[in-house]
Amino acid sequence: MTTAVFPGSFDPVTWGHVDIATRARAMFSRVIVAVAHNTAKTPMLDVGARVELARRAVSPLEGVDVMPVDGLLVDFCREVGAGVIVKGLRGGTDYDYERPMALMNRSMTGIETVFITGDNALSHVASSFVRDIARHGGSISRYVPDGVVDAVSAAVAAEERERV
């Protein structure tokens, strides 16, 4: 039984994330969607909300779990017994960003990273675009699973209240 960890900030979770989790599950007996806090990013949604939304998004997928991760990803992988990290790639820029991390993770622990190329129909969907569209009043419903629109709308409203 091989456990794979699919990490990300999932701020918010998108159909692209669900696609990668689905295809990773076809390759590995267990997939853990690891909702992380990226210190280089300021999240729109708190970790609890991101975990809950990701859980709802992947709930139809047997063998896919969602857990928050704090600290080094490789330490989390060891804790859950994962032998592989899964990363979704939309294009070359993602690969250029992810490759050095994959090499570092392997050099630290021997854990390999498997890259899954995102579905072409979803390659333009990024959480950062979804947040930007929502902040400017656009509809994000076709890019995100059920429940995400309401959570993002509430977060945008909270941001607007803080600005006032």
Rank of each mutant, 00 (worst) to 15 (best):
D119I: 00
A54K: 01
V130R: 06
G118D: 04
V47F: 00
D96H: 07
L73P: 06
R106S: 12
V149C: 12
K87W: 13
D70Q: 08
G92M: 12
A36K: 05
F129H: 15
V66C: 03
R90T: 13
G138E: 02
T117F: 13
S128K: 01
I133V: 15
I140H: 08
V86A: 04
D150I: 02
G147D: 10
P60F: 11
L73R: 07
M67R: 15
G71M: 11
M104N: 06
Y95W: 14
V144M: 03
A134N: 09
H37D: 14
E98K: 11
V31P: 05
V114D: 05
V80G: 08
F115W: 00
E98V: 00
M44C: 08
M108L: 15
G110W: 13
V149K: 12
T117H: 11
I85R: 12
G92H: 14
G138Y: 09
S59M: 04
L45G: 02
V149L: 00
T117A: 13
A36V: 13
V84D: 10
E79F: 09
S128A: 06
A126K: 11
T113M: 05
G138T: 07
D150H: 03
R131K: 15
A40L: 08
Y143G: 00
N105I: 00
R55C: 10
D150S: 12
A40V: 01
I116N: 07
V125P: 02
D70T: 09
F129M: 14
G138Q: 10
D94S: 13
L103G: 12
D65M: 06
Y97S: 11
R131A: 04
S128L: 02
S127P: 01
Y95P: 02
P68D: 08
L72E: 08
I116R: 03
G147K: 13
G63P: 10
R135C: 12
F76Y: 11
G71S: 10
M101D: 09
L53P: 02
L122E: 08
D150T: 10
D132N: 09
P43C: 10
V84E: 14
A49P: 05
N120G: 08
D46C: 02
D46E: 11
V35L: 11
L61Q: 04
L61H: 09
D96K: 05
G81D: 11
V74C: 02
P145V: 05
R55D: 03
D65H: 07
S141M: 00
C77S: 09
G91M: 05
G138A: 05
V31H: 12
V114Q: 11
F115N: 07
T109H: 03
G83A: 10
T113V: 00
F115C: 03
V84Y: 06
G91F: 07
T109E: 02
G91S: 14
P60W: 08
A102S: 15
L61V: 01
I85P: 01
V80M: 00
R142S: 11
A57Q: 07
P145T: 03
F129K: 13
V35D: 06
D46H: 01
G48Q: 04
P145N: 10
R142H: 04
D150V: 01
A34H: 13
L61W: 09
N105L: 00
E112G: 07
S59A: 15
I140Q: 07
